[in-house]
């Protein structure tokens, strides 16, 4: 346990870098000015915490664009807690075989499967 904490914490003090969470500048975080749907205030800080502190340590593993955390943030903001949660679960499930169903595009410095929110709420959302 102590070893794991040290393993995570050590890079934070190395080479003048405050921590891996500084890397979030490179990441895709959705527009902060977007109107937030009611009921999503509990989950948004959790996702932001994940984006800022956990994801940089875990590495860029999500093959999609927007990344699952950004997608989830958008879903909670647009549809609120319940539908936002359903859409997040849906994304985690259909990500498993996304390579056969979404176009691959160069985003930043790597190829990603394009799967925006609009591709999954077009059949029920009011546009």
């Amino acid at each position: 346990m102590i070893g794991a904490v040290l393993l995570i914490a050590t890079p934070a003090f190395a080479g003048g870098i405050k921590g891996p969470w500084e890397l979030d500048k490179k990441r895709n975080i959705v527009n902060e000015n977007h109107e937030t749907a009611p009921g999503s205030y509990i989950t948004l800080p959790l996702i932001r915490f994940f984006q800022k502190y956990i994801s940089p340590v875990d590495g860029e593993r999500c093959p999609c664009f927007p990344t699952c955390s950004s997608y989830s943030l958008q879903a909670y903001r647009k549809h609120g807690f319940f539908i936002g949660t359903l859409m997040t679960v849906d994304r985690l499930f259909h990500e498993a075989d996304i390579e056969k169903h979404a176009p691959l595009r160069k985003v930043g410095d790597r190829d990603r499967f394009i799967d925006p929110l609009e591709n999954n709420d077009f059949w029920f959302a009011d546009h």
């Binding site: 949660t85 679960v89 849906d90």
Partner: peptide
């Protein structure tokens, strides 16, 4: 519930 939503969504897609 997300699993049911996801099944409906993939069918629509």
């Amino acid at each position: 519930a997300g699993n049911i939503f996801s099944a409906v969504n993939v069918a629509h897609n």
